[in-house]
Computed example of a mutant assay.
Amino acid sequence: MKISGYFSEFSLGEVFRFLEQGQKTGCLTLKSMDESHTLSFLPPVAEHYLFFRYGQIVAATTTLNHQGLRQLIEQRGYLHPLTMQRVMNRYPGNVPLGVFLKSQAILDSQQIQLLFKQQVLTPIPYLFALKDGYFHFDAQHPLPFAEMTGLSASPQAITLAGLRLLRDWTPLLDKLPLADSTIVSLVNEPPSVQLGKIEWQVWEHIDGTTTIQEIAQRLNIAVLEVQKICFRLMVMGIVEEVVNISPLSPNNTTPDQEIDSDLSATPSTGLSSSFLNGIVAFLKATVNP
């Protein structure tokens, strides 16, 4: 089964949650529709591929030539290209390359972990910066064992870790919640993911009435830092921004404007209703391999 859409319709966070909650296996293609848009310190490529196994991310590449992990190994200086070629001549191809290299005592666990982080963790924050793009998920696409380290992680955990490590937030500034917006929780229980100290403090002040600026003042931290934390929680689907609109004077308010104002302050669920309606048939029809 296949499912496609545009970032203008569904956020990358929604797509990730759908794949993770549905325990999907396959290839997620993310394609930038803006040729002038480049992702900071990433190669200027138009497409990115994320591979899922039962809802967990197992690999990420920018091509489908099955050379990405091999090139990372060579770039990090773990193996000389000639040595790598001899190793690949013995590689059976039906197990993750990282598992094979570890079984042959060619790479150790720490090296495998570093490769996985560079391969998967590095591009994630910048993929959220794509403004005009297209996604396509193919549940029939075979897993690329030559690109796999043998490690996996949940999209939610990878996204949170990647955004925490992000140093240049310039590509994402226009996606941060506004300082005078309030943040509402979409879950009844505390987050299941492990939050940092400041993240927990921000979470504890989210009550649907306190603005981001007020939270920053109470915690004595920068407004921008609270905006970043709230954005991370929004991407994870556990909170939502409610933009505060200055009320109109009674004499100037029409019934239609009152309705619009009420709707603007109503939080939605973690997955938009349009997104759910668009994929309900796919959810019913798809059976995990």
Rank of each mutant, 00 (worst) to 15 (best):
Tyr134Asp: 12
Met88Gly: 04
Leu219Asn: 02
Phe135Ser: 02
Arg167Ser: 07
Gly5Thr: 02
Pro81Arg: 07
Pro289Lys: 07
Val187Tyr: 09
Val187Ala: 09
Gly13Met: 09
Lys24Gln: 13
Leu127His: 03
Leu263Pro: 02
Pro250Trp: 05
Gly162Thr: 04
Thr211Ala: 01
Val223Trp: 06
Ile158Cys: 05
Pro155Gly: 10
Arg167Tyr: 02
Ile183Ser: 05
Phe282Pro: 02
Ser4Phe: 11
Gln194Met: 07
Leu19His: 05
Ile124Lys: 03
Arg76Ser: 10
Glu240Met: 02
Asp138Thr: 06
Ala139Trp: 06
Pro267Glu: 04
Leu195Cys: 05
Arg218Glu: 13
Arg90Met: 12
Leu101Cys: 03
Thr253Cys: 13
Thr211Asp: 01
Gln21Phe: 08
Gly278Ile: 00
Glu9Ser: 14
Glu204Ser: 13
Lys284Leu: 15
Ala265Pro: 04
Ile279Gly: 03
Met84Arg: 01
Ile215Lys: 02
Ile124Arg: 01
Pro155Tyr: 10
Gly133Tyr: 06
Gln217Cys: 08
Pro96Lys: 03
Leu165Asn: 09
Leu107Ser: 05
Ala153Phe: 07
Gly93Tyr: 02
Tyr54Glu: 14
Thr159Phe: 05
Pro171Gln: 09
Leu178Ile: 08
Pro255Leu: 08
Ser274Gly: 00
Val120Asp: 01
Ser273Arg: 11
Ser273Trp: 11
Lys284Ile: 10
Val193Leu: 15
